[in-house]
Design a protein around this nucleic acid. Structure first.
Length: 274
DNA sequence: CGGTGGACCTGCTGGC
DNA sequence: TGCCAGCAGGTCCACC
């Protein structure tokens, strides 16, 4: 479900409400998510700790704990987090419930169960198997045209798949990959090893622009994404190609095409993108 | 080594 | 109406 802008929107909501709260209990209704949740580790390393901040690395939310510990949450395709007064009853697919004293709770809901939850220490976090291979943040200076050119050298994979490879850059999912390629005027099937610096400059700028604009609009609600306060995003109104198969391009009127790459839909304008 | 295809899950939609 | 194929915003691993 969520790509970087949606996760960042959720992070901002959590960062307003969680710091200073103490995790007083955890209830696991379904431990089998993307990986099996280690309930004992949560009890030992999260319960009783106070939350100091909520940060983000790639699409992972990092709930930092005092005196040490990081509660890591990933929303997969359909994960949602909810902060509020304790619910009267559990809903279907409410898997994890963190009590924050008697009047507040953090609830993790995930229909398809591709999400993740684990706890680790501050020292182990960078080397954690789920995080250690991750590439640069797209909105950081490390994500540059020079970096992309170097990284793509000798590779033959399509630029769409390259952009969605978390070892290359994190946070760019299926929606924003198509949108970025449209802005950069590049067809998704272009082989990365043959692109020149000028192409990477266009693409790098486009990725940053699209992600920042989506964050500014609180993300994209395509079917069911909502933030931690239950609010929908607004960026779906600004999508230029994603999900617009057969509709006219807003720039040149040609019909948007849909192709499948690595099992995922890609959308592009055959006129604007080369 | 790089690249693809399928697996993991549930639920919704559209065609017959 | 019912059934079934196809699709969905992510990640990982086995296999060529």
């Amino acid at each position: 479900m969520p790509e970087l802008p949606e996760v960042e929107t959720i992070r901002r909501g959590l960062a307003e409400r969680l710091p200073g709260q103490t995790i007083t209990g955890v209830r696991v209704r379904q431990a089998q998510l993307r990986h099996l949740v280690d309930v004992a580790a949560l009890q030992e390393q999260a319960v009783g700790r106070t939350i100091t901040s909520v940060d983000r690395r790639a699409k992972y939310l990092l709930v930092r704990l005092q005196p040490d510990g990081v509660l890591v949450l990933h929303l997969g395709m359909t994960g949602r987090l909810w902060v509020g007064p304790p619910a009267e009853q559990d809903a279907l697919h409410d898997h994890l419930i963190f009590s924050l004293g008697p009047e507040l709770e953090l609830r993790f809901h995930d229909t398809r169960r591709f999400g993740m939850c684990f706890v680790t220490t501050e020292a182990e976090l960078p080397q954690h198997p789920r995080l250690r291979h991750l590439g640069p943040e797209p909105l950081s200076e490390a994500f540059s045209s020079a970096y992309l050119l170097e990284r793509a050298k000798g590779l033959h994979k399509p630029v769409k798949n390259f952009l969605m490879d978390a070892a290359v850059v994190v946070g760019v999912g299926n929606i924003y990959a198509s949108e970025s390629l449209f802005l950069a005027r590049l067809r998704p099937a272009r082989a990365v090893g043959r692109l020149r610096l000028q192409h990477w400059e266009r693409l790098c700028t486009a990725v940053k622009q699209v992600l920042q604009a989506a964050i500014d609009h609180h993300g994209t609600t395509f079917s069911d994404y909502v933030d931690s306060e239950g609010r929908q995003g607004n960026f779906q109104n600004q999508l230029l190609v994603y999900g617009r198969d057969g509709e006219p391009c807003r720039h040149d009127g040609r019909l948007i095409k849909r192709i499948v790459q690595a099992g995922r839909s890609s959308y592009y304008c055959p006129g604007c993108q080369r």
